[in-house]
Amino acid sequence: MTVTITVNGADHALDIDPATPLLYVLRDDLELNGAKYGCGLGQCGACTVHIDGKPAFSCLTPVGAVAGRRIRTVEGLGSADAPGLLQQAFEKEQAAQCGYCIAGMLMRAQALLDRNPDPDEAQIRAHMQTNLCRCGTHMRILRAIRRAVAMRKGVQSAQDVRP
């Protein structure tokens, strides 16, 4: 059947089994690399995208369920040439090792900043709890999120907002 989805502002009409998890549609049909297969169980967050502005596990979201809803992926935050603010903060903090989790981390964190532009440390940590990193990049990810908060406030150095 034909399912039309809106990803990063563009509509895509697909002839597809509506049960297909959004993750595979993004990766294999739309050729977007950001969302990753990590567990397929909604336990690690590597596949996180936004659906109508809320962070969701694309690995467990049937594409038929999101027809007509707004989907945003890490590609929608910016590009390597024109990175979004949060991406800039991650770049500045070099907040990646293998980086496989990072697109999910970015989307998870972006959802927090969209809702709460000035989260405190405890709120950031609690919000990021759903996403796993195995390389141990957590400290840098937290710094990058704090840096993004500071950048939004016009503070150039994330030093000022370290706990």
Partner: peptide
């Protein structure tokens, strides 16, 4: 029928 697809994509993995 629509829920069968939802189940297959969202629930069946577990």
């Amino acid at each position: 029928p629509a829920a069968a697809a939802l189940f297959a994509g969202a629930c069946a993995g577990c």
